[in-house]
Nucleic acid binder design. Structure first.
Lengths: 224, 224
DNA sequence: GCCGGACGTCAGGATCGCGTCAAGGCACCC
DNA sequence: GGGTGCCTTGACGCGATCCTGACGTCCGGC
């Protein structure tokens, strides 16, 4: 059916999840901590990730941050913490659902079904190529005319959000929210400053952009 | 930001949700029972639905069944029942998330953000095609004879409202309200000006419109 | 034939949004 | 302590966009 990456350090729970998921027809890959989780996600190309927040090495949101730039499938978060602030933080960090332990297995499977059903879109290209530059979402690398270009973290976050929606208009609110957070939805000058920097670094003629277009009053659009 | 249809029979809760959602930048439409919910969903074209399962007239799954054949956006279910069998039933009936009452407002908003974020990643089933132009509602892009045409925010808002109701008459009040807001219901000259601009940009012969028709005294109609 | 209402067209001026630049604050590394 | 990037913030000019009013046209009613 679909491949699931399960990230948890509890061996008992891992076993139970593996059995139930297999019985439901899924292909299961597991990881015991955050670093192997990110590595496995890149290697095994899962369709969906089940992620425990209480990992020994990394914080849950760090794992999410490591996955989200290039992993477009659904991420279902497991956690022992029921505080709504934790839930909000995880959801805004890119999680698609949040289930508190202890949980009912039937419910988890149903939530997984719902997530997969919705996320059944195309897996998403990890490398985006244009005539003048290349963006490797997995490796976080940009090359212009074959030579690597250094981007600051903010520039990268902005570019990847645009590149992940090729041809589509991305609203200013969506950009601001995904790069700076929900509290910065009005700071449209940030977009102007950083779009200018990206154009200066990527566009052949920054004054007349060919790939990073502005739609006045609405947002920006990356056209391959 | 996006339009939310809230379905609940609890007036208190409805009020609280309306206030919080408005504050979060959403456009809010409400319905007190299942039958009006389905009707409102068809009329108002919400981006996401928040649905209480305990409605006076219909069962929650019946409402879901009424929505799902054509409504492709996310549906977030509210319910007082915490039993996992209820959750499984609702999720498998087409719900994207299930929140038990009483709930934390911040968490609900975060789950809504997550649902909308994922729902907007869905590829454009929402493309309307005519012989001379195409409208991609998801990408917010219009092409005439294959070449992209730039629309201003107002033009786009007007066109999308018309295109979302293909073949149907859209009243002047509805257009004015959805584009300019409830305070502009009498300013019918706005419609004349912007319809003219849209025809100039889209119609093969703007003087004799083939797709954007005027119904004198009533409104306008888009015929594919 | 006359008249009123509703629509289409046009142009001009106020306003808004965007690109650009530069300066200040901050963290981090040497 | 000095230096280097990076992020934030403000100011400015310019072009696009929106609103507004005036005028012409069409059509049904009287």
């Amino acid at each position: 059916m679909s491949r699931v990456l399960v990230v948890d350090d509890d061996v008992q729970l891992l076993r139970a999840l593996r059995i139930s998921l297999r019985a439901a027809g899924h292909d299961v890959v597991t990881a015991p901590d955050g670093t192997t989780a990110v590595r496995e996600a890149a290697a095994a190309h899962p369709d969906v990730v089940v992620l425990d927040l209480g990992l020994p090495d990394l914080d849950g949101t760090e794992v999410l941050a490591g996955l989200r730039p290039w992993f477009t499938g659904p991420v279902l978060v497991l956690s022992a913490r029921a505080d709504s602030r934790d839930k909000v933080a995880a959801l805004d960090a890119g999680a698609d659902d949040y289930v508190t332990k202890p949980f009912d297995m039937a419910e988890l499977l149903a939530r997984l079904r719902a997530a997969v059903r919705r996320g059944s879109a195309e897996p998403g290209q990890a490398v985006v190529v244009t005539d003048s530059f290349t963006v490797d979402l997995a490796a976080k690398q940009v090359t212009v005319d074959g030579v690597a270009v250094r981007l600051t973290p903010t520039e990268w976050a902005l570019l990847s959000e645009l590149v992940r929606n090729p041809g589509r208009l991305v609203g200013q609110r969506q950009l601001l929210q995904s790069v700076w957070g929900p509290a910065y939805e009005r700071e449209t000058n940030y977009l102007r400053v950083y779009l200018a920097q990206l154009r200066r670094k990527l566009e052949p003629d920054p004054a007349h952009p060919r790939y990073l277009h502005t739609e006045p009053g609405m947002g920006y659009r990356f056209t391959p």
